[in-house]
Amino acid sequence: MGKIYLDPERCIGCRSCEVACEREHGHPRISVDKVKDLAAVPVYCHQCDTAPCAAVCYTGSLRLDGDMVVFDPDLCTLCGLCFVACPFGAIELDSVIHRCDLCGGTPVCVMTCPTEALQLEDIDAITGSTRSRAAGVLAARVRV
C-alpha cells in the first residue's frame, strides 16, 4: 500500500484535508500550517519506515506492520511516549490517541484535496517520475 505524499507547490492552504479528516474521525489528524501567509503545508503522519512512535511504544500498542504503523487501542496506556517521539507532531493525545490510519487504505484527505497536492503513492513511483521528468528536461536541453 502507498503512503501519503505532499507536493508543497500544489497546496493552496484551503484546509479541506483537515475538515474532511475531522468529519471522518471526529478529530483531525492532519493540520495545515500557513507560513507567513505565503505558503501552506499540511502536516500529517508519514507512516515512517522505522516508525519512531512504534519504536518507543513499550506496550506494543503501536507497531510496524509491513509498510504501515498499526495501532491497537486496547493496549494503549496513554503514556504519551509516541507523542514525544513523533518529529511531525502528527500524534495528538487527549482521552485517546489521535493518529492517522490511512482511513483503511483510501485516505479522505487525499481524495478531497482539490489540487492533488496530497497523493497516495509508493515513494519509489514518486521519485521515479520526478527523476524521469528531470532527465527529460536535461535531455531536451542537450538535443535542442
Partner: peptide, 25 residues
Amino acid sequence: ICIGCWTCASVCTYGVIGRDRRARV
C-alpha cells in the same frame, strides 16, 4: 538518525533519494 519518513525524497527535484528496503531508511 533517519526514520524513513521520505520527506526528503518527496521534495528532491531530481528524484535521486532512494529507499533502502532492508534498513528502511
